[in-house]
Amino acid sequence: MAVQSLFVVNKAGGLMFQRTYGETAPRLTPNDYLHLASTFHGMQLLVQELSPSPLPKSITAPTGGIRALETPSLSLAALTSPTGVQFFVTADVATERLGALLAEVYRVYSDVVMKNPFYVLDMPIRCERWESAVRGVVERHARLSG
């Protein structure tokens, strides 16, 4: 049971970051990942439109949207920050603590990406400290989930 792929998508649906950590995850072309990211972003908007009851009252960002998705062979967890950045992760089915993993990734993002003065908002994240910090989070998650 392991984390396979991590995606970070900006509020316009553009892919900011994608890495594959699992050994069994399918390898796609960079273009495919771009498509995947923007499709998922569109799906998030769609499910919010489909919500049968009004979303919890909030004057800030949308609080609805997909948080978890299960198929017979995959678990997916998503976290949308109130600023509209979306983090989602694919993992082996029934992998636990994916929500906590994403919260940790968001904390790392707020530290090493947003506080890097040379990072331009909403652009792809190319930053060594972020790469290694995220890898650290994924490895810690693997250890904790045994």
């Binding site: 920050s81 600023t83 968001y106 993002y109 707020s110 530290d111 947003m114 506080k115």
Partner: peptide, 8 residues
């Protein structure tokens, strides 16, 4: 930039 730090 700092708002994400706050939210996270």
């Amino acid at each position: 930039r700092l708002v994400d730090d706050f939210l996270a």
